[in-house]
Design a protein around this nucleic acid. Sequence first.
DNA 1: TATTGTTATACTCTATAACTATA
DNA 2: TATAGTTATAGAGTATAACAATA
Lengths: 162, 162
Amino acid sequence: MPQKKTTPPDATPAGRLVEARLHHVLGYQLAQATIATTVVYMNEVGEPFELRPVEYTILSLINENPDGSSAQLAQALAVTAPNITMWIDKLEGRGLVQRTRNETDKRAQHLRLTPKGTALVVQATEKLLVGEREALSHLSDGERTILIELLHKVARNRPGKK
Amino acid sequence: MPQKKTTPPDATPAGRLVEARLHHVLGYQLAQATIATTVVYMNEVGEPFELRPVEYTILSLINENPDGSSAQLAQALAVTAPNITMWIDKLEGRGLVQRTRNETDKRAQHLRLTPKGTALVVQATEKLLVGEREALSHLSDGERTILIELLHKVARNRPGKK
DNA sequence: TATTGTTATACTCTATAACTATA
DNA sequence: TATAGTTATAGAGTATAACAATA
């Protein structure tokens, strides 16, 4: 396999491929960074807790927004309603989430974590934060903070679907 | 639907859900930001060119690394080899990519864009850059640059799979 | 034996449409 | 009529295993 000895200035982390124009495409850099955080997630939370990324996020959002609706979750995660139903089914089946009927509007429902679910989320989040901090030790605290805030700023004015 | 009128300081862009601890999980912020860039991608490139994100990235990487191998692509994109084969099949079928036999190592192959493929990538990238710039107009030039560089830094020392 | 790339196949995840029960 | 949530179903995407050809 022909492989240059000298690594060019712009290279993908693992593939050693030049990425001149692509470098400035935010979506591409997000995808590349996500590969790194996904590895951390799988090692720290995904495999040990048998929890998919979506499941973890759903649990976290329910935890921090008790009695929210599944419609809110669907919008926050940009997934369809049937999808949310399926995931909540799974999480409820594992005794992590509880559905309760909304008494003022009987179509809707409140979502809440069980004590087991709460314990799991807290533990998972701690492991994640520690794991990410280790994996990103080549970034300073300031850089990590700025990165988080800039990403949040990008996400905040999320455009409409079209 | 019970909905607070005042938006809390930390909220998901669309779902208006609080995200206190989750806020500091990089993987979560990456996913949220990706929702925003995906909308831009689909509008600017995905739908008009009928090109999936992976396909666009593959074309871009081939364009900027002529005669690279599919094994390199697989590693750069963190996808499996059979997957790459499938995508290259599709792209070759559309006359965008060309496979050529490596004469020194007959197992391997060189990947190259056709003129049609090159034209498409260039055009798509321009549209993407403009579209992202518009969608992210609430970020300054400096902020966008910093964001890109920090993401690149995260991706650069991507950890191994385990 | 190891590696590049492919084929075959099954599985996960997601999306669309149609349904229910409330409003 | 419209909305919250569900069910049913099909499709997209991905991974694993087994294989062929070459090193």
